[in-house]
């Protein structure tokens, strides 16, 4: 798998994480004012589980997504060589 293909896969996974995380955020905000909306709550839990799985997969393959105790790191300390968000084109094309 050449480098470009691998990087593409990584960015696709990251875009998925962003989209799913966005759903948890929006549902969370909705639930703050509608705590009894069972359907919204079920969907929040569904997306939250999905997000946790996606994050785990990302971190296993590419290293920690977050720091300060929110993500584990392999040896050596991987946080510093993660591409910083502003260092690469993080904008989703065509959006």
């Amino acid at each position: 798998m050449n480098h470009a293909h691998a990087d593409n896969e990584r960015r696709e996974l990251l875009d998925q994480i962003r989209a799913i995380e966005f759903m948890t955020i929006d549902l969370n905000l909705y639930l703050d004012t509608h705590p009894n909306d069972r359907r919204a709550l079920n969907e929040y839990n569904y997306y939250t589980r999905q997000l946790q799985a996606l994050r785990k997969e990302y971190e296993m393959r590419y290293g920690p997504l977050t720091n300060f105790g929110y993500s584990l790191s392999q040896y050596p300390w991987a946080w510093i060589n993660e591409p910083w968000p502003w260092e690469e084109d993080h904008y989703m094309e065509g959006c």
């Binding site: 998925q16 799913i20 759903m23 004012t33 909306d37 997306y47």
Partner: peptide
């Protein structure tokens, strides 16, 4: 008062 009926897909919602 907002009533949740339909939702965009995650990618659409993010956009």
């Amino acid at each position: 008062y907002q009533q949740y009926t339909t939702s965009l897909s995650p990618m659409e919602a993010l956009r």
